[in-house]
Design a protein around this nucleic acid. Structure first.
Lengths: 201, 201
DNA sequence: AGCCGCTGTTGAACAGACGTCAATAGCGTT
DNA sequence: AACGCTATTGACGTCTGTTCAACAGCGGCT
């Protein structure tokens, strides 16, 4: 018998890192980000605290890595299929987003709260993700079609689009908790129509 | 000589509480809410840590008290003057809000981040404050005038108005940092027009 | 004036979590 | 079967939140 030995398990750095990030995002679904302590994570993963500091320099970096991972998931999952009409495309993109929020509600809410309340790095990560999501919408719509609608890409437009993203986020999260008599389609229609309303002069 | 004695100072509970809350909000302007530690506050106030636990049960309650105080300030300061035209009134109310954010930028940003990222109590306090601010706008406009514009008070309307509040908050904060070529009046116009756009069917 | 009691206030002690680092032990190589 | 690389540990130091019994300012009472 080759000594079943103590619990020490040696893994490749890649899979270990992966495991820890996975566990981190899973734990995030149940609690606040700063309740995802090094202590808890180490215990849950069956490793020593020290090992976490080997992979992620400190708590903040670990949290940043978890958020980055979660954000990438959202971006990938909500990737839109190609559709002709811009406004319909917008509604479809929003639909994918709404569905994602519905599926991963607790985790998603935890994420946005962590990002909003966190340090500069966390906020930057989230802000960038929001940008990527809205940029994708604009890319698909196409500059010419947007120009037809009276929308031009400018700093002011960016400002307002970011605001629209905040509105969408807020409304969707609240809607999932309490639809307030609105069907999914009605919700999507409303949200989609607001974008031109705010951005067109 | 009656012994100049040690630094121990005895105050009435009211003034002591007041002092600590004032100090707390002042410290919040320079740092994150959870950087406003019991340690720092005690040192800054020239008292022992223990005394804070006498006035506020624990860190979270203290933070909640600080946020509550800050939020009341905002509500009071942005109180609108009576104006006839609803849309103009709205713009004026927004103007007061924008000015407040400009004046107290770091403190305000600290506040909303704390509220967004904090525990349930903090979020509830902030959510309620937002409600109060938007409710005030609606009260002033008057139910009849709103009905003329096609706006009825319903759960769905509430949902969307809350979203609009999030948009406003987001846009105003970003605008203060970088106006993106928009004048104060242009900003107010845009924001005011978005409300009927989102809320009217 | 001097004692007394109420209570605002302190400081020591404990707990829990972050971060460091030299020592330890898997596992592939020879 | 010994060796070396490196993933992993565990003990230690520190910082901050929290508790609690003891202390002291201050007004009232004799």
């Amino acid at each position: 018998m080759t000594t079943p030995s103590t619990g020490r398990v040696r893994m490749s750095p890649e899979s270990r890192r992966e495991q820890l990030l996975d566990l981190g995002t899973r734990l995030l679904a149940t609690r606040t980000l700063d309740e995802v302590s090094i202590e808890l994570l180490a215990e849950e993963a069956g490793i020593s605290r020290g090992l976490l500091y080997h992979y992620f320099g400190n708590k903040q970096e670990f949290h940043a890595a978890v958020v980055r991972r979660a954000v990438e998931d959202i971006y990938a999952i909500t990737a839109p299929r190609g559709i002709e009409d811009p406004l319909e495309q917008l509604a479809v993109s929003l639909g994918a987003y709404v569905d994602y929020v519905k599926e991963n509600y607790t985790g998603y809410v935890s994420l946005i709260r962590a990002a909003a309340g966190g340090n500069e790095e966390l906020r930057a990560i989230y802000q960038q993700a929001r940008r990527a999501l809205t940029d994708r919408i604009f890319e698909i719509a196409g500059a010419e079609q947007l120009a037809e609608l009276g929308v031009v890409d400018s700093a002011a437009t960016r400002l307002l689009v970011d605001g629209w993203a905040a509105l969408v986020e807020n409304v969707v999260v609240a809607w999932v908790e309490d639809p307030a008599g609105l069907s999914r389609d009605e919700l999507l229609q409303r949200l989609a129509l607001v974008l031109p309303a705010i951005v067109t002069r």
